[in-house]
Computed example of a mutant assay.
Amino acid sequence: MDSELPSQDQTRVADNLKKIIQSDTYQLAHQDLDLLNSSSMRGVRMLLEISKPELYFEEAGITSTIIVFGGARIQEKSAAKATLKEAMKNLDANPGSAKVQRNVSRAEKILELSKFYKEAREFAFLASHFGQSGESPGPSCSSHVIVTGGGPGIMEAANRGAFDAGCRSIGLNIELPHEQNPNPYITPDLCFKFNYFALRKFHFVMRAVGAVLFPGGYGTLDELFELLTLRQVGTQHAMPIILFGREYWSRLIDFDFMADSGLIDDDDLQLIQFAETAAEAWELIGSQATNKP
C-alpha cells in the first residue's frame, strides 16, 4: 500500500492529531480542571483541602494557634457610627417606615457591640506579642498564632491585632455564594480559601491551644458547639474555651438550664469560661495553654 497519503487525507490526519492533543482525555489528570471539579472527584478535592494548608503550616513552622471567632457584622466604632448616621438619615426621610425604624434599632445595637471589635483587636495583640513562649515577636512567630475565619468584623479585628504586633496570623476563608474577600491584615502566605466547611474546621482545631469567642451569629454558634462537642466527648485535647461578654452569652444560651434538664453533665459547664476584657482573656489563655496541642 502506498505510504504517501493524498493531500486531502493528510489534512484529515493533521486535523485529527490536533483534536487528539486538544482533547480533555489527553490532558494530564491533575491539569484537567473539568475533571477535578466534577462530582466524582469530590474526594480528591477534599484531600487537597486537608493537605495544602497542612503543608504550608509545616513549612512555616506553625506549632500552635489560638482561635478567635465572632460576628462578621460587628464593626469598628467609627464605621458603626457612620452606619447609624446613615440609618438615621433614612429615618428622617421615611419616618413612618417600620423597616427603616428597625434598621435604626439594629444600627444602634451594632454600635454598642463595636466595643468587641476593639477588645478582639487588643486580645490578638496581647496573644501575639506575649504568647510566643520565649520567641521574639515578629514575622517568624510560630506559637500562639492567631487564626480566624479570615473575613470582616471580629475576624478582621483579631488579624489586625496580630498585624499591629508585627506578628503572623492565619485566615481560613470560605468560598460563599455571595462575594467575600479576606480582610487585609492576614499574613499573605497563611491565608487559605476553603470550599468545605468541615475541612476548614479541621484546620481550626488541629493546632489550637485555646479559643476565644466573641458575640456572633449562626456561624459563631456553629463553631462554639463544634468545639464544645469535641471537648465533651474527649476527641479534642484539653483547651480553654472562652466566651467574651458574659451578658451577651448568658442571654443567648442558658447553659445552666441544659445541665438542670439533665441533657449535659454539671462537669460540662466547666468547659466554658468567661472574660470581659482582652487582658482577662489573655490571662486565661496564657495560664492554661501549652506550646503544642
Rank of each mutant, 00 (worst) to 15 (best):
Q232V: 04
I253A: 01
L111S: 00
A14Y: 06
L271W: 09
M239S: 08
D254Y: 08
K109A: 06
W282A: 02
L5E: 03
I253K: 02
E112H: 09
N159K: 07
A238L: 13
V147Q: 00
K115T: 11
D24Q: 15
L5K: 08
L227M: 09
A107W: 02
L284C: 03
N159F: 04
V145W: 02
L33A: 14
S7A: 11
S78H: 10
Y185C: 00
Q236L: 15
G134N: 11
H144E: 00
S169N: 11
L230K: 03
K18W: 06
E108G: 06
L47H: 11
V209G: 12
A107P: 05
S133F: 15
L284D: 00
S143P: 01
Y56V: 14
L243D: 04
Q132I: 12
G149D: 06
C167D: 02
L176W: 07
L48Q: 13
G138F: 04
S169W: 03
E276P: 03
K109M: 04
L243C: 10
L199Q: 09
Q132D: 13
R106N: 10
L263G: 03
R42T: 15
A211V: 14
E156I: 09
T25E: 14
M258T: 13
V147R: 00
L55V: 15
G234T: 13
W249I: 10
R251H: 13
P293Q: 04
R45G: 07
D260F: 09
F125V: 02
K18Y: 02
P139V: 11
E175P: 00
Q31L: 15
I174V: 08
G171F: 05
L33I: 15
R121L: 05
A98M: 11
D34M: 09
D266S: 15
E119G: 02
L224A: 07
G234E: 07
H144L: 02
V104E: 01
T65G: 06
D265V: 10
P53W: 10
G150W: 05
A238V: 12
P177M: 05
F130A: 03
R106Q: 08
Q273H: 13
A158N: 08
L228C: 08
V147Y: 01
G61K: 10
D254H: 12
L126V: 05
K201R: 13
R168S: 11
R231L: 14
F163L: 00
T65D: 02
I253G: 00
G262R: 11
Q75D: 07
T187V: 00
R168V: 14
T277C: 06
L47A: 15
V145I: 12
V100M: 00
V13G: 01
T83K: 13
D267G: 04
S140Y: 05
F274Q: 04
G286N: 14
Y196I: 07
F274D: 01
F57S: 06
Q101F: 04
T11P: 00
S143G: 08
E122Q: 12
G245W: 06
G286C: 04
G216N: 05
A124V: 03
L252A: 09
L55H: 09
K115F: 01
P95H: 12
A162S: 15
S39P: 05
V209C: 14
Y185P: 00
I241Y: 04
L91H: 08
A162N: 08
Q132V: 14
V212S: 05
G61S: 07
S40R: 13
W249Y: 07
S105Q: 15
G234C: 11
P184S: 03
I264P: 11
F123N: 03
M239P: 05
H129P: 00
